[in-house]
Every structure is written in C-alpha cells, then in structure tokens.
Design a protein around this nucleic acid. Structure first.
Length: 462
RNA sequence: GGCCCCUUCGUCUAGCGGUUAGGAUCCAUGGUUUUCAUCCAUGUUACAGGAGUUCGAGUCUCCUAGGGGUCACCA
C-alpha cells in the first residue's frame, strides 16, 4: 500500500511551498487509496513551538487535506531512537567521536583555507585508545568510504553521489539527542513510507539517509524531490514577497480549492487542463509527472482561479464564507439576487464583500468625477421624474426584470437614451460609476430604499 | 570553491526525432453590456548559446553561460 507523509518542523507557519509538497504527497496517497501521514519533526527542542504546530494543523484543516492516523511527534520517540543508536554502536556501525565542536571548527577552517571541502576527517572511526577525559562524545555513523551512493529519484532521475561526499555524520549529539537525518530515516522506515515526496533542498540528505537505511537493514523508499517555488521575480520566496503563510491567503479571501488548483499546476500538469477539482486531481495525479525545474509564483493566475471558483460556488456557500469578511447576509431575503449581482465582479471574497457592502450601505459620499459626468444637464429632473414613475408604477416591482421594464418605459416616454437615466441613477444609488446592473440593485434595495437614495442624491448633490 | 540539479512565450505549462511549437494567464484590440465586471472573438510574444549525432533535433550527446540547491552537535 502506498504510504506518503508530510513532515514539517514546527518552527513557523505552513509555507506555501510546503503546502504544495504536502499536496503532492496527499494526492499520491489518495490516488492509490493509500495513507497520508503527518509527522512533526521536533527533535530540536530549542526551536520548536506549540503555536507553530497548531498553525500548521490549522492550515491543513482549512485546505481540507486530511491525514490518516495520529500525528507522530519525534520528540516522543527518543527512547526508540536510542535503541537504534545502541544497536549500531554494538554492531560497530557507529562509533563515539570525542572531537569537540571547537576542534571541528578549527579543522574546518584549515580545510577551507586550503580550498578543500570542509569535512570530518574520520579520526575516531577506528579509535581504540583511551578517550580524552571530560569530553562528552557524539555518535557518528560509519558511511561508506568509497564507491557511489546511488538512487533513482522519481523526479530528477538517477542520482549518483560519490561516497566520499558523505561524511561519517553525527547521529547523536553530545547530549545524547538524535539528529535529523538519523531519525527521519528511522521514522520513514518504521512508519512504512513507500514514497517520500519532499523539497529538493533535501536531495543531499538522501544519501545520508540511505546510509542509515543500509546500516539498519531497512527497505529504501522511493524518493521524489520537488523543485522550489520562487517569487514572481524568480527569486527565492521570502516574507517580503507578501503572503507566504498559507493562512494569509484565507485572510485575503482566497478559496482553498483555488489555492490548491493553483499549486497543483506549479510543477505538474495534465495536458492543457487548467481547472482541476479535488476529485480530478486525485484521479489524475502521478508524482512521476512532476517537473524537474522550479516555478514562479503568479498572483494573476491565482486571482483568475479564485474568481473562477467564486463564480461557481453556490450562493448559500458564499454567504457562509462571507461571514469571515464582515458581511452577514445569511438572513437577507434578497440573498440570491445580491450574490447573483456581485459574484462575477469579485476576484476574492474580500472584494466580493466590498461589492456587497457598496450595495447594502447607502453611499456616504458621491465620487466627484462620477458626479461631474453623470449630473450634468437635466439629470436631477430626470431622476425626480423617475421617482414619480416608481411611485405610480402599477405592476409589481420585485424582480430585476420588473425594474427593467419600468426603466424601459421611462426612457421611451421621455425619448432619452438609457445613459441619461442610468448614469445619474447609478451615482445616486451607489455613489460611483461602476458596479452591478441597475435593475438588480433596485430589486435588491426595494422601491422605498431606491427612492430614498435618489431623493437624497438629488438634494445633496450641488 | 567542491558536488548535485535546472533552463520552451513576461509567468504557469504541452511537447516524449518529422507540429504553421499548442493551451492558460497577463497585455492589446473588437463584440456583448445603460457603467464596471463577466462572457465571446482576434492578436503580440518562446525552444539560453554553441558544437555534434541524424535524411531530419525543442526533443539524443557534449561544451559554455545563467539560475538554484547543498556542504552543521538546524530541520
């Protein structure tokens, strides 16, 4: 059975790039009816935080990517790791190294001065003498000293790293705590991972982890190293690029399905298809189709996708989502009309909320330019006459089409163009020249509020 | 610096030896719309450079350039 995982270290929020690798892993698991596991890499007690962990879990919840089984915390598995350290020591596959951090620094500097690659020189690898007193040793694993460490990466292809590029790296610190590359390999093996999908910044960790797999006799999973997501300028994403925190997208009014659709198309595609429902992603995704090269973030495309998903959401769902943006229209009797009139002109929920507020709240001021353009000539008289028409209209005024009929008759009787009434009317009702159709707005507001707003505009505008 | 990876329109990408190099986004123009948006149509723009292999190369090989990753008692 296919088993994948996402294994963040709880040192900050969930990053947009992290979400994509998580998505790829999740899709791989769901596509194969496998399991998607979540593991918190919190071996570094000093840098972990509970808040970061909660933030990550919350982001997963928002996008709707469910994990299987309990969340695994590495900090709770130290006894387990210790067993394996002891075993490697017993079997002579690992050894104690009494070199201090200071000595290591000196060595490294000397190597750099000679333009050599800084590396551990293996001086305690076969040490049998009396250890120096007062030095708490670290544990190093014996890595192969010659030949190649090779693996077939599902994204990058065959990777061959010369064994001498891999040091006898530290698997347990002087205080006894295990290190990253050691515990990752153990956990991935013990948790039954079949496919490890992660950022390609981990590519060079892979040979180290293979050393651990081999030493412990574990089966090596399939690796997929996914290239980075850069900012719009093609440089590494940083806080300065605006939103990198997944939850920031929620705050900005993005729909999770839009974000996921955007992310899945970064480094992956299925022919010419751009729109993918979650179900389609699951049905079509294959990690072997992931592209090798890095890709750039593109806000325009995300916005386009978000607009698409807003347009295709039901009005009741939108009403519910809008509550987060200071707009509660769930009890509004014109809910359907209101959303029909606005959902096509908001690229984000935030913009949609603004559109709705613009209609619901009477204008506090009138845009100068709009007034200048719309209120020249006989605008005020036309508006006053239109009020009279609305007041004496004998047919019902409920639907946009009812109002449309009234307006049509009005311009016909008056022998004027639509713009002569449309423009001043728009400014009167909304305060500006842009926005939804007049018929719809009047239908939403109702006759009384419509007349009220027109009267106010006529008396207020000089 | 060593090692490793990457390179098709501005951006996301299709292409898997023979295509007028396709789609999407963006931008521009036109149409629809009383406005704006939506929607529809049309258009501009790409194989990093150079050698080779081949009847034929975006596709295979090599070199160069540019970009990125990595070399911790961080993860």
């Amino acid at each position: 059975m296919t088993v994948t995982r996402f294994a963040p270290s709880p040192t900050g929020y969930l990053h947009i790039g992290g979400l994509r690798t998580a998505l790829f892993s999740w899709l791989t698991a769901r596509h194969n009816d496998g399991k998607f596991l979540l593991r918190i890499e919190d071996t570094d007690m000093a840098r972990n935080s509970e808040e970061a962990k909660d933030a990550i879990l919350k982001a997963f919840e928002w996008v709707g990517m469910s994990h299987d089984g309990e969340v695994v915390y590495q900090s709770k598995r130290f006894d387990l790791y210790q067993k394996y350290i002891d075993r490697l020591l017993d079997e002579g596959k690992a050894y104690k190294c009494y070199m201090t951090k200071e000595e290591l620094d000196v060595l490294r500097e000397a190597q750099m001065a000679k333009k050599e690659r800084p590396r551990y020189d293996g001086r305690y690898r076969d040490f049998t003498g009396t250890p120096p007193v007062g030095v708490a040793p670290v544990i190093r694993i014996k890595a192969p000293q010659e030949g190649m460490i090779s693996f077939s990466d599902g994204v990058k292809g065959e990777i061959n790293i010369a064994a001498d590029e891999v040091d006898d790296f530290i698997i347990a610190r002087a205080d006894g705590s295990p290190t990253y590359n050691f515990v990752v390999a153990i956990d991935d093996a013990l948790m039954g991972l079949t496919d490890v999908i992660r950022g390609d910044d981990h590519l060079y960790n892979t040979p180290k982890q293979i050393v651990v797999y081999d030493a412990l006799g574990f089966k090596i999973p399939k690796f997929y190293h996914v290239a980075m997501i850069n900012n719009e300028q093609g440089k590494k994403l940083s806080k300065r690029d605006g939103a990198t925190d997944v939850m920031e997208y929620k705050a900005q009014g993005f729909l999770p399905e839009a974000l996921l659709n955007f992310l899945v198309r970064l480094g992956w595609s299925h022919g010419d298809q751009e729109i993918f429902s979650i179900e389609e992603m699951i049905a079509l995704f294959d990690p072997r189709d992931i592209n090798k090269s890095s890709s750039n973030f593109n806000m325009d495309k995300l916005l386009w996708l978000n607009a698409h998903y807003i347009k295709n959401k039901s009005n009741s769902e939108l009403a519910e989502l809008l509550k987060e943006f200071d707009v509660d229209i769930s009890g509004h009797d014109k809910l359907e009309m209101l959303l029909d009139a606005t959902k096509e002109r908001g690229k984000t929920l935030l913009e949609l909320a603004e559109q709705i507020k613009l209609i619901l709240n009477a204008p506090e001021s009138y845009d100068d330019k709009a007034v200048k353009k719309a209120f020249k000539g006989a605008a005020k008289e036309i508006l006053t006459d239109f009020i009279a028409v609305l007041q004496t209209w004998e047919k019902p005024l409920h639907l946009p089409s009812d109002y449309h009929e009234a307006m049509e008759k009005f311009v016909a009787d008056k022998e004027i163009g639509f713009g002569k009434i449309g423009m001043p009317l728009r400014v009167s009702l909304l305060g500006s020249m842009t926005g939804s159709g007049m018929d719809e707005i009047m239908a939403i507001l109702g006759v009384d509020e419509t007349i009220l707003r027109i009267e106010r505009a006529v008396s207020t505008i000089a």
